[in-house]
Amino acid sequence: MTVELFGMSRALAGRPTIDLPIDGAIDYAGFLRALAEAVPALVPQVIASSHDALVEPNLILLDGRRAVRDGERFSADDRPCVLFLASGG
């Protein structure tokens, strides 16, 4: 599964994408555990120390447009993107 990284996750990983050894569908928590294992640098700034939640306001959008819903399983075809929007001041 290829994961696209943006913002902090890309800066911490040092690359724009990461390939995870996942075949078939996976749920949100399983995905985060796999991602944390592949890129330990994402913990704790992007992925919580528990490895099963993202640090707000990071989120995962499938194909950059649709948030993962509770209990939803997704696969490589969904192109998960780890990102955040930053504004204000």
């Binding site: 696209e4 943006f6 913002g7 902090m8 950059g64 955040f84 929007l85 930053a86 504004s87």
Partner: peptide, 8 residues
Amino acid sequence: ANLRVLQR
């Protein structure tokens, strides 16, 4: 950093 995100 929003630029890359919003583009994607």
